[in-house]
Amino acid sequence: MDFVPFITAGFPNETLFKKILFMLEEEGAKMIEIGVPYSDPLADGPTIQRTSLRAIEQGITLSKIFDIIKEVRATGLTASLILFTYYNPLLQMGLEKATEQMMQGKLQGVLVPDLPFEESPLLKSALAPYHIPLISLITPTTPIHRRNMLAKQADGFVYIVSSLGVTGERSVFHQKISSLIHEVKEVASVPVVLGFGIKQRSQIEDMANVLDGYVIGSALLRRIEEVENQVASDNISLSIEEYEDRYVENVRQHVKEMQV
């Protein structure tokens, strides 16, 4: 069961974001979700919204994100990168241009939470020439016939939403989750990943034999915020490099703990 971190693009700032990506890869992340910050989200909880607003205020845009991704690829990041974005930023850039940029950034998939299967053909055909999969989401409330349809056609991997509601840390999961994962595994020919609300691996250890991966997003972002406050309050005079190293090393400790 692989650790799949989610991080808002450009958070906490561009330099630290890039350093954290490399650190995540060192800590065993074979796949990383990169969230495109958007001011009008429908599925984000408070933590992701907060980090998104901050990234937007620093001038992070979709085209800027593609530049950053190309840069980290050029400097040696090999983990699979999945773009997590709302539909409108792609539409405003133009689907053709956006998918070409995804190819150039060697993205391994794109997940668009507000694009239902029924409205997805346009994006899918723009992605087709580059063989980039559009990831399907399945939730505990998805009816059986729809769930089977989504699981069968799934490309890349299936993303199961673990709890009702938006993203954010939770202590209780939907009671049907375990049986849902088994049922999806039977139908899908691609890996199955669980996300939304996971704080650390131990919460879902009992599903480790069926699940291929687990996404940790809000919890990671909140640890980064905590580290920032802590490093700032340490009140030691540091050079910029020392500050960044200390910052990333502190986040690294949290990332290690999450995988226990």
Partner: peptide
Amino acid sequence: GGAYVPEQLQEVL
């Protein structure tokens, strides 16, 4: 028009 909403909302709608 349409319904560009997360999968969690599809069934409710």
